[in-house]
Amino acid sequence: MNDQKEMFRTGLKDSVAIVAGFIPACFTFGLVGKGLGLGSLEVFLLSALVFAGASQFIGVKMLAAGAAAPVILLLTLIINLRYLFISLSFGGQLNRNISVLARTWIGFSLTEEVYAVSMIPREEANRKTENEKMNQLLGLPYLLGLQIPPYVANLIATASGITLASYIPALYLPALNTSLYALLIALVVPQLKGSLRNMAICLSAAGSSWLLNPLLGNSSILIAMLIGMAVGSLIKGQVKAEKGVSV
């Protein structure tokens, strides 16, 4: 019982960085959605029900432009297909005894940031049992602690953005949104040190995503991900040992 509370607290602590990134991003989303002329309820529901960064922004733009439903849904399908892979990889790390009901919530609120924070091992001053933690599967208390605060922050920040849409100069908001990406960089870059394979995966995925982006838009992510994984499997050497690679 105490152990569960402890794990919940660890989750809460790990969620702080995600919340810090979500607040400006979701605030901007509320603001942009209102700015494009959509109704408050619609903007809010996109955040509350879809809860998937990039596709929300695209959805809100297309809805405002009056795009046809099949087009919007098809685009959502393509852009969010990456979650299928993310979820497949994440599911392997879940504790087997987590119920289907709990998995419903875990799946619903599984964003890139949650995935990154829970899958990538970190070295922090007060993180005592790094190896133990990584060998353990992800438990429900930890995930509740990790996933609830970002979702609540998403709701509150979106609502604030919608409410304040007419008062705030939007000039600096894009700059604030770099926080989401800074979090991901902070988690990925330490994994590249000392691992030729990880470095190759990162550079090939990032490079191809950047090159394909003008052609394919946001679906470049999916192709680039596959390229990165293919490059990873081409590089021989330390087959297993890398998972817990130290920072």
């Binding site: 990456r82 949104n177 990406y181 991901l184 960089i185 990162c202 490079g207 991900m225 998972k243």
Partner: peptide
């Protein structure tokens, strides 16, 4: 093994055009 490469691959692919176009 492929799934092991996935976190870095997908997060790199997601971050780089994303941050440039922020």
């Amino acid at each position: 093994a492929l799934l092991e490469y996935l976190p870095i691959a997908v997060l790199s692919a997601f971050t780089v055009p994303g941050i440039i176009q922020v």
